[in-house]
Computed example of a mutant assay.
Amino acid sequence: MGFEDDWRSWHASRESYAGAEYGPSALESTNWLITEPAAVDGVPGLWALTGDGGIRGSDLGTAGASVTLRGTETIRFGRRELRVFERNGTIGLRVFNPQRPQRQRFSAIDAYPPREGWRVPAVFEETPGESITITAVDGEEQDSPVAGRLHFTLDGIPLSLTVTRGAQGALSAVFADATNGIETYRFRFLPVDEPAADGSAWIDFNRAYLPPCAFSDQFVCPLPPAGNRYTASIRAGERAVILGR
């Protein structure tokens, strides 16, 4: 498969994921619960933390039925699906609704045409023991280990990209550039292939993609660290969500 065909296949899978029945566009609410039972919009019963990493729903209809959710367990009430969400040890309850207007209106993801010129060579520098403070869109902060930095050149200007490792060990970055808020969403995510043993690597900005919070403001995405905010315009990758009428 050629470069452009490979990119178009990736882009099609991204659109399929984004508009899926219970995909990111369907996130209706993120509810930060306490141990005191409280109502959650759109679903029956009262919901509270169990104190041991779970969520308990009570008064769920006849005979005071109850349920406890932990980990990846889910439950549906009608079309709405409830999922447990954990962040920095804090547990929340997420409600996904395929009938959320933004999901029903989801049409496509606008993107720049793929260009091999946006696949740039880089040199990977490991940074053992270093961490940075990551701020989420809602202001929550947490320290995150830095996997390293990728040093590269863009239009003759030397730059670096700070990358971290996800739960599955893959490298990724969050970055912002001069197109944000004009041509593109306010920031974007970027997967990074594992560098070679000699530190040589590639950064493919064609694979820059929209964070989940571009599809629903109920996601709490991490913002780009200071070193990943560029004054240059990176016209590659996904641009914005397209909604139909």
Rank of each mutant, 00 (worst) to 15 (best):
L210A: 04
I91M: 04
G89T: 13
Q142C: 11
A173K: 03
D217R: 11
A20T: 06
N228E: 11
N180E: 09
R56E: 06
V241K: 00
G57D: 10
Q168T: 14
R229H: 02
E73P: 07
V123A: 02
W32G: 09
A136S: 13
W118N: 14
V146M: 11
P98M: 02
S25F: 08
Q218K: 13
W10S: 06
S107V: 00
P24F: 00
A136Y: 08
T133D: 07
G148Y: 01
R14A: 07
Q218A: 08
V120W: 14
D177C: 12
G199D: 00
G51T: 00
P128A: 02
D59L: 12
A147V: 04
A170N: 12
A167D: 02
R207H: 08
A38F: 00
T74C: 06
I109H: 05
P211W: 00
R115S: 13
F96W: 13
E36G: 01
I242P: 03
G23D: 03
T133S: 09
G64K: 09
L161S: 05
V43E: 00
G169F: 15
R239I: 10
D41C: 11
G139D: 15
S200W: 00
T50Q: 01
G237T: 14
R103Q: 14
R235P: 06
G227K: 02
T30C: 07
T133K: 14
D193R: 09
F219H: 05
T127P: 00
W202A: 02
E141F: 01
A122Q: 04
G199F: 00
L223I: 07
N180L: 05
G156I: 11
A232F: 15
L150T: 04
L27G: 03
G92Y: 04
G199R: 00
P121Y: 12
S144K: 09
A226R: 10
D5I: 10
S200C: 07
D52M: 09
T50N: 06
G117P: 03
F189Q: 00
C213F: 05
Y112I: 04
R149G: 03
D110V: 01
S160M: 13
V95M: 05
R119E: 09
L82T: 00
R87Q: 09
R83G: 08
T127M: 07
M1E: 14
P224F: 07
S29Q: 08
S144M: 06
Y17Q: 02
R239C: 08
R115H: 15
A232S: 12
S107I: 02
A65T: 13
F152H: 01
R103F: 03
P212F: 10
T62R: 09
I242C: 06
D110P: 08
I157T: 13
L150H: 03
E194T: 15
L159N: 08
G2D: 14
E194V: 13
A226H: 11
I34N: 15
L49D: 01
E126G: 07
A111R: 10
V137E: 03
R14P: 01
P101F: 09
R80H: 04
Q104E: 09
A232I: 15
A111H: 13
P158Q: 09
D52F: 05
R79P: 06
D198Y: 02
A108V: 04
G2T: 12
Q102H: 03
W7C: 06
E21A: 07
